[in-house]
Simulated scan of single mutants.
Amino acid sequence: MTGIVVYDLEYTTWTGARERRWSGPGEHREVVQIGAVRLDDGAELSLLVKPRINPRLSAYFTDLTGVTQDQVDRHGMDFPEALGQLADFATGARLASNGADEDVLRENCDLNGTDFPFDRRCRDLAPLLMAAAGAQAHIYSCEMAATFGLATDQQSHDALGDARQVAQVLRHLFKTGRVLPSDLL
């Protein structure tokens, strides 16, 4: 592994879906937005994805993320293409996310009949970040900078903005010696 790519996903949701764990009729966590940041050079990737099973975004999702149906219709790509772009972006790197994003990627691979290209390359940072913050509960990516007393101007529930916040916090933790880059490998 030559580097670390912090990534975040936004995926289809509806009022109450999280509480139901997306178990309602027709509810799937289909990826709509992928954001990624390379820790070594700061390169970024931002992609919109067209959900296949639920192609119409809910008003709840749009209100939460700011991603509109028009944006997805005009600039979105099919999931396999987006996954390929993420894989190219992350060549040789470990992927790191704050939470269950690996599970969501795997679900989307299953939904789209696509192989998962990141076996043994994903790391869930949530336990490490919770320990560094002294937190007893999961810290949402959109609250990451504030939790560590860092300023941010990133939009909440934007995949790239959330990936940037997690990357910002990791760099801060590396600089202060609270976490070592080797802790992520």
Rank of each mutant, 00 (worst) to 15 (best):
T2C: 08
T2Q: 14
G3S: 12
I4V: 15
V5S: 08
V5Y: 08
V6E: 05
V6K: 02
D8K: 08
E10G: 11
Y11Q: 00
T13M: 13
T15M: 01
E19M: 10
E19F: 08
E19R: 14
R20K: 08
W22F: 11
S23H: 06
S23F: 00
G24N: 04
P25R: 12
H28F: 13
E30G: 12
V31F: 06
V31Q: 06
V32N: 07
Q33T: 02
G35F: 02
A36Q: 06
V37F: 07
V37C: 11
L39T: 04
D41I: 00
G42L: 09
A43H: 06
L45N: 05
S46P: 01
L47A: 05
L48A: 10
V49Q: 09
K50A: 09
P51S: 09
P51W: 10
N54M: 02
N54F: 01
R56Q: 12
L57Y: 03
L57R: 07
L57M: 08
L57P: 04
F61W: 00
F61R: 05
T62N: 04
T62G: 09
T62Q: 14
G66D: 04
T68F: 11
Q69W: 06
Q71I: 00
Q71T: 02
R74T: 12
M77V: 15
M77N: 00
D78P: 01
D78Q: 06
A82G: 02
L83D: 08
G84A: 13
G84R: 09
A87P: 01
D88E: 14
A90K: 02
A90E: 07
G92N: 11
A93F: 08
A93C: 15
R94N: 08
R94T: 15
N98R: 04
A100S: 14
D101I: 07
D101T: 07
E102D: 13
E102L: 03
D103C: 05
L105I: 15
N108A: 11
N108S: 12
N112K: 00
G113Y: 08
T114K: 01
D115F: 01
F116Q: 07
R120S: 13
R120W: 09
R121K: 12
L125G: 10
L125R: 09
A126M: 14
L128H: 05
L129Y: 02
A133T: 15
A135I: 13
A135W: 09
A137D: 12
A137C: 03
H138Y: 15
I139P: 02
I139A: 03
Y140D: 07
S141D: 00
S141P: 03
E143F: 10
E143D: 15
M144V: 14
A145T: 15
A146I: 07
T147L: 00
T147M: 02
T147I: 04
G149N: 09
A151T: 15
T152I: 07
Q154C: 13
Q155I: 13
H157D: 05
D158A: 08
D158V: 06
A159V: 04
G161I: 04
G161S: 03
G161L: 04
A163F: 01
Q165L: 06
V166A: 03
A167M: 09
Q168C: 12
Q168Y: 05
L170N: 06
R171M: 09
L173Y: 05
L173N: 10
L173W: 03
T176Q: 03
G177L: 02
V179A: 01
L180R: 14
L180I: 01
L185K: 00
